[in-house]
């Protein structure tokens, strides 16, 4: 399988990439690690005629402490998250979740910015960033803006990013209080059938593959904040979700998984 023909340009900087996005319009796509885009292009699910390679922008590859949060460059690869001492100390959930993405070869290529921009509700890291209450920094022709992760995802493979915007950084609050991630799947290296991320003892709970975007389990979060037991809160985990149906699971089974995994995650996070 070979993708349809396209032209390829290496971006010299984020500014250059954004300028090229402006020139090419909807013909163009940014190429980061390529581990979502290249498969989609092989299947002709995406047929951009211009690829702008941002994967070589090493200055967008970093993980550093800033006051109260951790700033991560968009081109930081999953493997770098997985082995980061900064994350191990100050955001162990992100490190742990990164190590669960695909397999080592996938993690050598895939980037944090790429997985967020791809906005697949079945992906692990977007849900983790959402549970943590992270922020996405996007750069466009008029500078940068900060987007709360709760505002970022809009639908299957869709986000609020404009055509000429690029994710340059992701910020997550520093903290290692009560966290857990439950990924339920049946095959090695697979996406989650359902996943649950719990941050900060349960003040942030998000669900993987329970709708068209990664979503917060708001009812469960509120019940917990109001003093409900873990079991009672977890029973509300699937409320207001619209789980997809596929070969792996129907909606009812996914809702069941969401409740069970939320209970396990909350118990582990508070254990």
């Amino acid at each position: 399988m070979i993708p349809a023909a396209f032209d390829y340009t290496v971006a010299e900087s984020a500014d250059h990439a954004i300028q090229l996005l402006g020139e090419y319009g909807d013909e163009a796509k940014l190429l980061a690690g390529g581990h979502s885009l290249i498969p989609m292009m092989k299947y002709r699910l995406a047929t951009p005629t211009q690829l702008i390679d941002v994967g070589r922008l090493d200055d967008l590859s970093y993980i550093r402490r800033e006051n109260g949060h951790i700033a991560i460059g968009a081109m930081t690869k999953h493997a770098q998250l997985e082995t980061s001492d900064v994350l191990a100390a100050d955001c162990p959930m992100l490190q742990h979740v990164a190590a669960l993405v695909g397999d080592p070869s996938v993690r050598h290529r895939g980037t944090l910015g790429g997985t967020l921009a791809h906005s697949d509700p079945a992906s692990d890291l977007p849900a983790a960033v959402l549970a943590l209450g992270g922020t996405i920094v996007a750069q466009g022709p008029n500078g940068t803006r900060e987007i709360a992760s709760s505002e970022f995802f809009t639908g299957y493979f869709e986000s609020v990013l404009a055509e000429d915007e690029m994710i340059v950084e992701v910020k997550v609050p520093a903290g290692s209080a009560g966290w857990n991630y439950q990924k339920f799947n049946r095959r090695a290296q697979d996406w989650a059938i359902v996943g649950v991320a719990v941050a900060d003892g349960g003040s942030g709970i998000s669900l993987v593959n329970m709708g068209s975007t990664p979503i917060r389990a708001t009812a469960a979060e509120e019940a917990l904040a109001g003093g409900a037991s873990i079991a009672d809160a977890a029973a509300l985990a699937a409320q207001d979700t619209d789980p997809p149906e596929d070969l792996n699971a129907d909606g009812e089974y996914r809702a069941h998984l969401a409740r069970v995994l939320t209970q396990r995650a909350l118990e582990a996070a508070n254990g």
């Binding site: 399988m1 390829y8 190429l31 390529g34 581990h35 290249i38 498969p39 092989k42 390679d53 994967g55 493997a79 397999d103 080592p104 070869s105 996938v106 050598h108 290529r109 290296q189």
Partner: peptide
């Protein structure tokens, strides 16, 4: 040919990658 089996694994700068999911230009 779809990033799943690893038969095409090579090293790029010393790290394993699936060469069916990397463009030659990359």
């Amino acid at each position: 040919d779809s990033s799943s089996c690893g038969a095409c694994t090579v090293h790029m700068n010393g790290e394993s990658v699936k060469s069916c999911t990397v463009l030659a230009v990359q």
